[in-house]
Design a protein around this nucleic acid. Structure first.
Length: 506
RNA sequence: GGGACGCUAGCUCAGUGGUAGAGCAUUCGGCUUUUAACCGACUGGUCCUGGGUUCGAAUCCCAGGCGUCCCA
């Protein structure tokens, strides 16, 4: 029978229920227990034993095993599953005033997928399955569409993402991932608040995008007749709050980058950015360790985790190594020795690196060498320190190493998971760097941003020394829930519609 | 942007040029201890889309769509 025919059959059942005086789309139900409560409470109940207690419970029918005068349903709620034991005599006795043919109607009018409310008592069956021994049942919501195969479930990844609700119904581990994601963000907020940080929401719609190098989404405000960008980072508004006198601020929220998708990229993703006055990037390393280990403990109860079968030890302190040291380790090249760009490119090329034509400074060659040879090898948590100034326009110059800034990125399983600086507070230096970026934007670099004059004005009023930190929440969730793709860590990842509608390009 | 692979019933999958299949689900009948219940019978298709080759295409060719993975 085709799904259209199944749907038609179930719509007929909806009509039948209405004719019998039952509402197939009920308003409310009060449960005394969830499935997991009962499994905990009656763990020691012996097979065949019955408990004379009034219990109400609700959930979705996930399986039906129906006999002539007896039926077993598997009911699923937010906490798990529980068997419902329905026996004709008991149902008829309890429900005769409501519906003399209650048991026949149960067999005829309920389907896998329906929501049911049950009133009954507790019984562990002869075969050892803890059950609610039903006296009464109520159809709370009639389902019209058939669920995926009860044994194989839903495995088609495209359908799982497009119809996440079906994925969640039939794949308990997917529900667990998003439950853990919620624990992670809650743990991070709780930890930061305990440390005296306050969360302040900053605008998603901005007339100037900045705080990162990325192509922004553009939208349009009709009544103001102006283009607006969706934020690519929360950095610049949060720093304005530090200028304003808050000493510890953060925002955990969505940012948007108009880029392609991959197992590590979704165009909208979640970051937490944290700014602390009077702190530097060393303080931020300690804070990063604290935030991530707190989240790991909260969710997994351990710092010894496994990601895609690789053991990861999150026990702090994590390795700290400079970008120069790591590149030298992998390539043998000492970038502090190069005087000219030509020297650096020649040496890197003979070390086997490729695609260096696009590099116009020694620092960019170094960064390229890092990305090509080091990045994916940083499996255990590693802070990579001291980046070239030309790829770090918002970071303060290193206090002792010319040409470098006080910046780190945290790598775990080869992925950038956090990024932090001693924030640049010199407004003149900051203006030069933003203007250099703006020149690249004018020259056609789509990821370069314009000069945010108001941000510069804020810096001119004076920003205290400040440590800033950004953590990629989606990648952290991937790590702590063992997801191979960012799409498994985001409830509704961006997909193209199956039938593409042509939208006028802005 | 490039490459590889995939798309067949509601779900999971067979089917490599000759009548479009299986299991589960659905529908009907039977059944008072099942838990992938069981037994019997039936039903269910835009083979991703369009074009081409061929007597004949799910299958071969071309173009496109969507997805997954890898690379940039």
């Amino acid at each position: 029978m085709s799904s259209e025919e199944i749907r038609a059959t179930r719509l007929q059942k909806v009509e039948q229920l209405k004719q019998l005086g039952f509402n197939p789309y009920a308003y409310r139900w009060e449960s005394s227990h969830h499935a997991a409560d009962l499994h905990t409470k009656y763990a020691d109940l012996a097979s065949g034993e019955e408990v004379d207690i009034d219990v109400t419970i609700a959930g979705r029918i996930m399986a039906r095993r129906v006999f002539g005068k007896l039926a077993f349903f598997t009911l699923q709620d937010d906490t798990g599953v529980i068997q419902i034991y329905l026996d004709k005599h008991k149902i008829q006795r309890s429900m005769s005033n409501k519906d003399p043919e209650a048991f026949e109607h149960l067999k005829q009018l309920t389907d896998v997928g329906d929501f049911l409310g049950i009133r009954g008592n507790i019984k562990r069956t002869e075969k050892g399955e803890l059950s609610v021994y039903a006296g009464e049942y109520t159809i709370l919501t009639k389902s019209l569409l058939p669920l995926p195969d009860k044994w194989h479930g839903l495995t088609d990844v495209e359908k799982r993402y497009r119809q996440r609700y079906v994925d969640l119904i039939v794949n308990p581990e997917v529900r667990e991932t998003f439950r853990r994601r919620a624990l992670i963000t809650a743990a991070i907020r709780r930890y930061l608040e305990q440390q005296g940080f306050i969360e302040i929401d900053t605008p998603v719609l901005q007339s100037e995008s900045g705080g990162a190098e990325a192509r922004p989404f553009v939208t349009y405000h009709n009544t103001l007749e102006m283009s607006l960008y969706l934020r690519i980072a929360t950095e610049l508004p949060l720093k304005r709050l530090i200028v304003g006198g808050f000493e510890k601020v953060f925002e955990l929220g969505r940012v948007f980058r108009n880029e392609g998708t991959s197992t590590r990229h979704n165009p909208e993703f979640t970051t937490v950015e944290v700014y602390q006055a009077y702190a530097d990037y060393h303080d931020m390393m300690a804070l990063t360790e604290a935030v991530i280990t707190t989240a790991a403990q909260q969710v997994l109860g351990t710092l010894q985790i496994t990601y895609q079968e690789t053991p990861i030890d999150l026990t702090p302190p994590w390795r700290r190594a400079t970008m120069h040291e790591l590149v030298q380790e992998k390539t043998g090249l000492d970038f502090t020795q190069f005087q000219t760009l030509g020297q650096a490119i020649d040496a890197a090329t003979s070390a086997g690196l490729t695609g260096l034509e696009k590099c116009d400074t020694i620092g960019k060659v170094l960064n390229e060498a890092f990305e090509q040879t080091v990045e994916t090898t940083l499996v255990q948590p590693t802070f990579v320190l001291d980046y070239p100034v030309e790829i770090s326009p918002l970071a303060k110059p290193h206090r002792s190493k010319p040409g470098l800034v006080e910046r780190f990125e945290l790598f775990i399983v080869g992925r950038e998971t956090a990024n932090s600086f001693s924030e640049l507070t010199d407004p003149v230096d900051q203006r030069e760097r933003l203007e250099a970026q703006a020149a690249r934007k004018a020259a056609g670099d789509l990821e370069a941003q314009g000069v945010d004059e108001d941000f510069l004005a804020a810096l001119e009023y004076g920003m205290p020394p400040t440590g800033g930190l950004g953590i990629g929440i989606d990648r952290l969730v991937m790590l702590l829930t063992d997801c191979a793709s960012i799409r498994d860590a985001i409830a509704f990842p961006l997909l193209k519609p199956e039938k593409v509608e042509v939208v006028e390009e802005v």
